[in-house]
Computed example of a mutant assay.
Amino acid sequence: MPTSVKTRPGPERHASQDAAFRTRADEVYAQLKRDVAEFSLVPGDRFTESEISERLGVSRTPVRQALFRLQQEGYVEVLFRSGWRVLPFDFDQFEQLYDLRMVLETTAVHRLCDSGHRVDRSLLDSLARIWLVPAAQRSSDTVQVAQWDEEFHCALVAAAGNAEMARVHRDVTDRIRIIRRLDFTKQPRIDATYEEHAKILKAIRANRGEQAAMLLRAHIETSQAEVRKITLHQVHMARTAGRR
């Protein structure tokens, strides 16, 4: 009788499996990062790979890959024989990131007002349609305004035409998102953001670089001051408010 031969999976099958795991790991990574940014997971929270695996309906392999990636970025730490923990805020690092953000954005604003540089006016026009509106048309949705605020600052840098500067700025934006969202838990801060963004845009459109940079610097410094006030209690309160 002919002997049956077991064939091993070819390289194509291994490649497709690896790609599937990478895709699932990317999805888990993105979801866990959202959980931290939206305070579903707050600094100090502990969890296991099995808990995440069960909640997201995936195997532990992509969960582990995602967590190792988040560990490298400073969001979580692995605990000896007891799962994982969301790391406390590193406020010194946030201060440094805000300083870097200040340099990048004020430099971009000066370029936007310099006739010698190519500027993407379509990006500025799209910002005007959001921020230069009557008070009655303003959004009061804290999640929406937080997203628009982030896009406002990224668009200013992108419109200045330096792709490397925009790339670094996006990385900074990603790393401060977790605490930046706390700046939009109260209506007065939303109102102030509309007013301040409108003044910055008007100065840019009038090519008043020094004024635009001054307004932008004050705007970022106000947000930075709010960051300094953040306590773990406030984070828990923000999470509670977000679940209502």
Rank of each mutant, 00 (worst) to 15 (best):
S223G: 15
P11R: 13
F21D: 13
C113G: 05
H219M: 04
A225E: 12
G209W: 03
S140N: 12
T7D: 09
A108N: 11
R121M: 07
H236R: 14
R175E: 09
V133F: 08
S126L: 02
Q211H: 01
P188L: 00
L127I: 07
F152C: 05
T240R: 12
R180L: 01
R244Q: 10
L87D: 03
R175I: 00
P2D: 10
V86M: 09
R243H: 10
R189G: 02
F152Q: 02
R239L: 06
D114G: 10
R22K: 14
R69E: 10
E77Q: 12
Q17T: 06
N207Q: 13
V103E: 15
Q31P: 02
T193A: 14
S223E: 11
Y98D: 08
P134Y: 03
R243P: 01
E95N: 12
A37P: 01
E38W: 04
A238E: 07
A192L: 10
A25I: 07
D45K: 12
G57F: 11
V168I: 15
D92N: 13
V157W: 13
K33R: 14
E38D: 11
F39H: 12
Q234K: 11
G57V: 07
G57D: 08
F21M: 14
F80R: 12
Q96I: 00
L132G: 04
M237L: 14
L201W: 07
V86P: 10
S122Y: 03
R111Y: 04
A203V: 01
L124V: 05
I179H: 00
S126T: 05
A160D: 10
S4Y: 10
D99K: 15
H219T: 00
A241G: 02
Y98M: 15
R170G: 07
R189K: 06
R228S: 12
V86L: 03
V119G: 12
R81C: 00
L104K: 09
L201E: 05
V143D: 13
L56Q: 15
A203M: 02
E95S: 13
A146S: 15
E196H: 11
Q96C: 04
A212V: 04
E150W: 02
L127G: 06
S4R: 13
R22I: 08
R177L: 08
L87K: 15
G83H: 07
G116C: 06
R34V: 06
R208C: 08
M237G: 02
I204Q: 06
R111Q: 14
L216E: 04
Y194R: 00
S223C: 06
G44H: 03
D174M: 00
A203C: 04
D99C: 01
H169E: 15
I200K: 01
L124W: 02
A146E: 11
R167M: 01
L97S: 03
L216F: 03
L87Y: 00
R167S: 11
E54W: 08
G209N: 05
R55L: 10
S82T: 11
L104C: 13
R239P: 00
R217I: 04
G161M: 08
P62R: 08
G44V: 00
V58T: 15
T240L: 12
Q93H: 07
F89G: 00
G83W: 09
E27W: 04
L182E: 07
Q72Y: 03
A198V: 02
Y75A: 08
R208W: 01
R208G: 02
S40K: 15
T185F: 07
V28G: 09
G44I: 03
F184S: 05
L87G: 03
D114Y: 03
